[in-house]
Structure formats: C-alpha cells, structure tokens
C-alpha cells in the first residue's frame, strides 16, 4: 500500500503521550474502600482520568499515570483518600 509510506503529522489518542507520568508523583493517593460511599466525586474531579470507575461505581487509582496532585483526597467528602509519601522520609 502506498499509504503506508505517507508520513502525516497526525497524532493519535493514546495513553502516555508524555511517558509514564506516575513517576512525577511525590505523594500517592490511597483509597480506603471501607470508607468509600461511591459518590464518584474523585472520579469527576480527577484532572488526569486516572481514577478508574468500575461497574459498581467503586473506584481505584491508575498508579502508572497518576501525577499525585491530590485533588481526589481534597474533594472526598468522607476523607476516604489519603496522600501517602512515595519515599519514606522523602518528598
């Protein structure tokens, strides 16, 4: 196919356009599933789409790409998310 040889300046949507952005993180969000009320506010406010929304509206974190901004922990109405330092004694 001739088209295979065409080089177009056309990017396609894919995760990791800037690499594994999880390495940018100083603090990581840890969800206490026992406290979670499935309100989905963390999922809604997450600027990175790294809060994964499951079928039953429970949530988990995509640590490969989460940049650790902490908005999820700040917005959680029941304080079920804690920001934990990535390196003990560091950050």
């Amino acid at each position: 196919m001739e088209e295979d040889h065409l080089v177009l300046p056309l990017s396609r949507p894919a995760p990791g356009a800037m690499g594994k952005t999880g390495t940018w993180r100083n603090y990581k969000p840890v969800i206490d599933q026992g406290k979670c009320i499935k309100c989905l506010l963390c999922w809604l406010y997450c600027p990175e789409a790294t809060i994964i929304r499951h079928e039953d509206n429970s949530v988990s974190v995509d640590y490969e790409y989460c940049k650790g901004c902490g908005i999820c922990a700040n917005e959680c109405p029941v304080k079920a998310i804690e920001m934990v330092p990535e390196v003990q004694g560091g950050a």
Partner: peptide, 12 residues
Amino acid sequence: LMPGNAACPGCP
C-alpha cells in the same frame, strides 16, 4: 482525555 498527557498536576 488520555492519562499520561503533558499537563501539570492539578491542571484545570
């Protein structure tokens, strides 16, 4: 929105 984009943490 794809995770792993170039935005700063906490980007509006």
